[in-house]
Design a protein around this nucleic acid. Structure first.
Lengths: 328, 328
DNA sequence: GAGTCTGCATAGGCATAGCCTATGACAAGT
DNA sequence: ACTTGTCATAGGCTATGCCTATGCAGACTC
């Protein structure tokens, strides 16, 4: 480090001091306008000159006269200070009221649960946020994240955590879903059959599932393989409502989370049968791309998603373990 | 003063800290790159966020992710820091080597004494200063100053000191100048006649003077009025060389300072006769316009003018009182 | 799932930057 | 010569800014 390494760098404070000096033409007057003592300003200007290694003002007994360097500093410094002010203003605005577009991608089973309440809550509480909700399979959602088509995604499978930032949302259990008439058991007020079944009981039931493209189906197949059998898949439909309709018409059974059919369970159109020893569980993660800047509005939406999930789980007694709440 | 008036303003230091954070993606890495402790940087970033009232980065366990506000700050901040650096660079350059144009205006009697040595000295010692010397009457020099045609002027009469900044240069005495043959007295080695004359002795001598437009002539007339007579002006010429030539041809006398004719005095072509009781004195001032910024080169030239005057006065034993030297 | 690693936050201590009051020097105007 | 306005210097006090040490939480490993 050099011996004469006086001050580290130019300070905006001193710059504004100097602008005041340039405006008032005398150190005393400027100090007065700045509500500070004259010697302090005097010292600051001197320090500035030492730092820049230039004489900025010629001291006289009737005030000071700016040098060429001084006028340059005053002119350019004013621009700089203005652009700093503008920047600060812009930042405060960004931070103050959340606004602007936010796009979220849900897989179908979460979309059923969240989309409408989320849209409604955001619209009523943050009318300046323009929220767009899209529904797709986990894989597509990750693609959308990668291509910056959405800000926030929900997925079930964890992927590369060096590109994405994950936050666990909730862990769901997959139930055998059936039309109540189509099952030889009583259903409690929570819509769940009294007697759970075991994995092996699944193996001969006619099931309607999604295609292999869906993460849910992959999970289900993994489960079956681990248990040493394969499902009796009578139909493959990549549409949750259609699956639900088939189930409620007693045309087949399926494997779904409580959240995916919570309305039908609540209305008694569909019953849940717990699969025990082992159960099929999956965890939903909230995902965002690491490289993508996070808008304030987007943060609000994330928080709202958590809130909505808690509300829905509580209101409908949905079987799921919530992830620990992030405070904010 | 408000309660939550936390920090006074944004600091460039903190801005550069944040840029490093944006670049490195983690507080630890950035602190390392900045050669500072991690907690210090952590604290600084937090302070910045408090000051701006915006979250700039979302802390994770694997570094930080910038928010929208953070990226904005990083982008615009970089521009600002660059423009500050450019400004500092420009200022250092302005201060380092004096260069560029400087215009000086002298009245004839000082121009005779100073112009050539000044031009030569500046050219040899500061080759990057482009010095222009102009010669005119005091009144015109003040006009030139007012119109920014010259940076520095020399005048004899003081004028409005709220517009101009004055610095006394030297006080000269006006002598009766004559061809040595045309005067009944011995002249010493300094070119001055042994016997002084009194003011009243002037009154019948045929004089060649400048017109009333010149400050010198006004001074002379004031002197005569104060002494209760008027000059016998046989010719009016607004050209110092022509006056000198007439005097040296013994066609007339004149009233000039030693400096105006120092060469002719040194060569013995002209002699000086001191006017005593009272003497005629005038002070030359160095003048610059208060509102006009002073270039470094201009400061150098001012200093050089003082140096040259001292040199000339000493070398030629010119009769004049020097103003106190300004150190520099 | 326990242990380790990595990264951020908090706490307390020390040096110094920054501002103040008091005072001195100097030029300009009375 | 005296007063007034200006800038500079000196000494003291407070708050800032950085440091080390330590705590805490998520993420990777076996």
């Amino acid at each position: 480090m050099s011996i004469n390494d006086d001050g580290e760098s130019l300070k905006l404070k001193q710059l504004s001091y100097f602008l005041s000096l340039a405006e008032h033409g005398s150190i005393s007057a400027a100090a007065n306008a700045l509500n500070m003592a004259q010697p302090s300003l005097s010292e600051n200007i001197a320090k500035l000159e030492r730092k820049l290694d230039v004489q900025l003002a010629i001291r006289g007994s009737r005030g000071v006269q700016l040098t060429q360097a001084g006028t340059l500093l005053a002119d350019r410094g004013q621009e700089i200070l203005k652009s700093v002010d503008d920047l600060v203003e812009a930042l405060r605005l960004l931070g103050s009221d959340p606004r602007g577009p936010v796009s979220v991608g849900f897989p179908p089973s979460l979309s059923i649960l969240l989309s409408v309440p989320l849209l409604e809550s955001i619209h009523s509480e943050y009318s300046d946020i323009r929220l767009h909700v899209a529904e797709a399979m986990s894989g597509d959602i990750l693609d959308w994240l990668a291509n910056d088509r959405i800000d926030i995604g929900c997925v079930y499978e964890i992927s590369d955590s060096s590109v994405y930032i994950l936050e666990p949302l909730l862990t769901e259990e997959l139930f055998l879903v059936t039309a109540p008439d189509n099952w030889d058991d009583e259903f409690g007020p929570d819509g769940i059959a009294k007697k759970p079944i075991t994995a092996s009981d699944l193996q001969h039931l006619p099931l309607v599932l999604t295609s292999q493209a869906h993460g849910a189906r992959k999970l289900q197949e993994r489960f079956a393989r681990a248990e040493g059998f394969s499902f009796n898949v009578t139909a493959t439909i990549d549409s949750l409502p259609h699956i639900v309709e088939m189930v409620s018409r007693a045309s087949a059974y399926s494997l779904l989370s409580h959240g995916a059919v919570f309305k039908q369970v609540a209305s008694g159109d569909i019953g849940l049968v717990r699969i025990a020893e082992p159960s099929i569980r999956r965890t939903a993660y909230l995902v965002r791309k690491r490289a993508r800047p996070v808008s304030h509005a987007s943060t609000i939406v994330e928080g709202m998603i958590g809130t909505i999930i808690r509300e829905m789980v509580e209101r409908y007694n949905i079987e799921a373990q919530l992830a620990p709440r992030k405070d904010g």
